[in-house]
Design a protein around this nucleic acid. Structure first.
Lengths: 211, 211
DNA sequence: TAATCAATATACCCGTGAGTATAGAAAATA
DNA sequence: TATTTTCTATACTCACGGGTATATTGATTA
């Protein structure tokens, strides 16, 4: 009889696992609240008091879940970088010619840049991080950049991409697809997917008319 | 005889005009020093004490020439915006088809974005400005954006540009050509003109191989 | 039941940095 | 020469915000 009660009504008594999950959830809530404010007002202009207030708690609560302000930012950035890494992995498993695979990745890349955590990756400049964090940050962004260059190189090799300068092509793509992190309104009429599609079409096709 | 001395040796006595020019020069020096530090470390992370120290003067000296910290930033941004407006004017006087005129402007645009003051326009986000300044800032950036859209529309109309979505094309171009403000090293091996050329070639030609 | 631990709050400390009050030197003007 | 103006420094005020010391409560474990 006591065993049966488990799935019925939500018991106010939490098991150890539930407590661990609660903790994770709260940590996550702090990060979500923080990243929104960082994106909206900038890191320096956002105080942890503000973040705490927006969650209806006090500052020490944040310190209970995260070490200090920089770590809050670092965790947010890491969430975004993780999404990018996943996108790269998904792309590696993708068939097709270089251009197709590149397009596949760019579509994900652009959309991530319109996500709260992805935006944060773009909007965070290394100067605000400690040297140590900045180094790691740079390294992980470089990983992504190199991945894009590989895809472009692959496309050039198999003829699906014009013989462009790989380095500059990756800069041009990154710039164009990072920019929405600054102008795209999450609650605007265009979905991230639509924005991504439109931008990528232009980048692939170019401005000059096709013969 | 006294008249003749004017152009000979630089007199330690300054005329009224010279004094006005001295003042301008100092003001300008403050802005140059400030914009460099803003670009390097970010606006919030730069104190006016630091700026003053880098010029070998004290903070009140800065306040003597400029009202307050925000005004320092606003003036820097205005310098950049002025360069952009000049570039637009020069382009208006330019002959040729839409694509040629667009290319002409983009070349200037991209280079300005690698200049100290131009960088500052890109790197300054409105959130750090007072509502009033932010509004003016947004308006002047919008001017530039509309100008680019006009050029693209012109090119589409005269057939020199493919029938792209004008709005997204301008976003894609802006993003790609703003990005160097964040990665281009002024003392690196590539000159701004070379960077601009390379990026623009890719944007106009697109990634897909030409038939 | 006692002792411990997790979670949260209140109230504080303290450094930084924007902005100012004041004074003094040098030059310009009367 | 006396007076005012320009330029600059020293030395301050004050608010903000990161971070912490400490107390409280409720649940967990011994």
């Amino acid at each position: 009889m006591p065993k049966l009660a488990s799935a019925e009504a939500p018991s106010p008594f939490r098991t150890r696992d539930e407590r661990v999950r609660d903790r994770e959830e709260k940590r996550e809530a702090v990060l979500r609240a923080a990243v929104r404010m960082f994106n909206a007002r900038g890191y320096h202009a956002t105080s942890l008091d503000d973040v705490a207030a927006s969650l209806g708690v006090s500052k020490p609560t944040i310190y209970h879940y995260l070490g200090n302000k920089e770590q809050v930012l670092v965790e947010c950035v890491n969430r975004g970088l993780e999404m990018l890494r996943d996108a790269a992995d998904a792309t590696r498993a993708q068939p097709g010619k270089g251009l197709d695979r590149l397009r596949y990745f760019l579509l994900l890349y652009a959309q991530i840049n319109m996500d709260d955590f992805g935006r944060c990756v773009i909007r965070t400049n290394e100067e605000v991080l400690s040297m140590d964090s900045a180094t790691r940050f740079r390294a992980r962004k470089r990983e992504i950049d190199l991945f894009v260059r590989d895809l472009i190189g692959e496309g050039v090799a198999d003829g699906s991409i014009a013989p462009v300068d790989v380095r500059f092509a990756s800069f041009a793509l990154a710039g164009a697809l990072n920019w929405p992190a600054r102008w795209h309104a999450p609650d605007g009429p265009m979905t991230p997917a639509q924005v991504a599609d439109s931008l990528i079409a232009i980048l692939i096709g170019g401005l000059a008319p096709r013969a």
